[in-house]
Design a protein around this nucleic acid. Structure first.
Length: 436
RNA sequence: GCCGCCUUAGCUCAGUUGGUGGAGCACUCGGCUGUUAACCGAGCGGUCACCGGUUCGAGUCCGGUAGGCGGCGCCA
């Protein structure tokens, strides 16, 4: 079939091929027959279209094949595009040639499926309309993140995935055999970014991140993608505004390129448009506790981290993502510095998404106080010797610097409105599930 | 780590007081010239997760084991 001009279903649905003879290739999405007529819904990467196959319009054996072919068989067909109100999308292909590329065996995924079964069949389920829509939006989001930082003068900087140190706490590291030694899968790009920020000043990266947290929730993955940034000569306030701009930039890109997919996912486009135009509020942790205790009649003690329940209650008061700053210093990682204006708190922030999607961004200024960091690492039972290279960064022309990480799957899940983060990545890895 | 729930056909589920295991979908065969996850008729399909106990008799009651799911904690 070399030399054949293949039409994409998108072009047909856009009305560009009406009354034209075309060639189409794809997969059988649905099929039903009625005596001398077969209706087959054809799917390609751009959409679905009804093909109407009448016995008299094509060779006998091709008609018989079209009756026999099961769902997910791959096909090459030719015919004429017609407007027809009886067709599901208002267009159909009246078929004059029907060639089977591969007769599919009975497809295991049928009408009723449980989430577990679909995860077992993930390699086949990613063909579904819902997952393809999510994957297209994910592709837009990943592209938007690169574009946002490159537009704003950042360099992409790559750190090792195999790392000797912890960043976010030792108990959640995945240990890997490294010749005769032990090494760990990256929990964060940050420590290496802090080395590079003194030469490149503005850097970002997006890549896989591994956390062996024993979490069984709709918001956790053991392997997820994090988009991180690090910038010199900046403070906490600067970076919270950059994070807000980034989220709005991502939203606008999705709204521009993925209206069709958002509709397939039943997402409220108007609501997303409103968020993309809004200012996101910044409040302190102390203010958040205040809202919970006064307006929600809760009894949250100052000093405790905000739990899922508290975050969700807090978000009932906001339509947009919210930045929460200045968490208590005791519950923060060793590299987050004390706020001189409010010494009980750290110069750090989380951005919380509405709708129960939780923390989508987390970041902080970076401590410049070597003795304080050593002290806090010791309290966690860490060997400070492994961090000497990191402390060197404070000894040779240190400057204020700051950075954050954005959870790609959480942003995908929030924008797509899907109820489990597992559907925001093609092949999820969780506490229990690591196949296929 | 803590708490709760589930396991019956390839898939989704029902199964009454303990008395010879059902439906829908899928698949096969037949019918139908406009279907919208089509419809009509027939067929195929079972170690009721596994091990043990109670009982004349267990899918059903009791105990254990395995696998799975959800939530919390922790985090992006």
């Amino acid at each position: 079939m070399s030399g054949t001009q293949w039409t994409r279903i998108e072009e047909i649905l856009d009305g560009k091929k009406t009354d034209k003879a075309i060639h189409l290739r794809g997969w059988i999405h649905r099929t039903r027959s009625s005596g001398n007529i077969v209706f087959t819904i054809i799917r390609d990467a751009t959409g679905t279209l009804q093909a109407t196959i009448k016995k008299d319009n094509l060779p006998e054996n091709e008609f018989e094949d079209s009756k026999k072919a099961l769902i997910e068989s791959s096909v090459e067909i030719k015919g004429t595009v017609k407007r027809d109100d009886r067709a599901p999308d208002g267009f159909e292909l009246q078929v004059t040639g029907f060639k089977i590329v591969n007769f599919a065996e009975p497809f295991p995924i049928v009408k009723d499926q449980s989430p577990e079964f679909l995860l077992d069949q993930r390699h086949l389920w990613i063909r579904s309309q819902k997952l393809s829509a999510v994957l297209k939006i994910r592709s837009t989001i990943v592209g938007a993140i690169h574009e946002f930082f490159r537009n704003n003068g950042y360099y992409e900087f790559d750190a090792p995935i195999l790392q000797p140190n912890q960043c976010e706490g030792g108990s959640t590291l995945f240990e890997v055999k490294y010749y005769d030694n032990k090494i760990y899968l990256s929990q964060s790009w940050q420590l290496y970014a802090e080395a590079a920020v003194f030469s490149l000043e503005k850097i970002y990266n997006m890549g896989p991140t591994f956390r062996a947290e024993r979490s069984k929730t709709s918001r956790h993955l053991s392997e997820f993608w994090m988009a991180e940034m690090e910038i010199a000569w900046a403070d906490l306030h600067d970076v919270t505004e950059i994070a807000k701009d980034e989220i709005r930039f991502i939203l606008n890109k999705v709204l521009k390129h993925n209206k069709r997919e958002l509709n397939i996912l039943d997402q409220d486009i108007k609501k997303l448009q409103l968020i993309a135009k809004s200012e996101f509020p910044t409040i302190t942790y102390t203010k958040a506790i205040d809202i919970l205790n006064k307006k929600e009649n809760m009894n949250v003690k100052w000093g405790k981290d905000l739990r899922t329940l508290e975050e969700n209650k807090l978000m009932d008061h906001f339509e947009t993502p919210v930045v929460v700053t200045n968490y208590p210093i005791e519950i923060m990682a060793f590299y987050k510095p004390r706020d001189p204006k409010d010494p009980k708190t750290a110069l750090c922030f989380d951005m919380i998404a509405p709708g129960g999607y939780g923390e989508i961004v987390g970041g902080s200024q970076r401590s410049l106080d070597v003795e304080d960091m050593k002290q806090r690492l010791k309290e966690q039972g860490e060997k400070t010797k492994n961090y000497e290279w990191y402390f060197d960064l404070r000894r040779y022309g240190s400057v204020p610097h700051v950075g954050y990480g954005l959870g790609v799957e959480r942003v995908v899940a929030w924008i797509c409105g899907i109820d489990n983060i597992k559907d925001a990545i093609p092949f999820p890895r969780t506490l229990i599930r690591f196949r296929p």
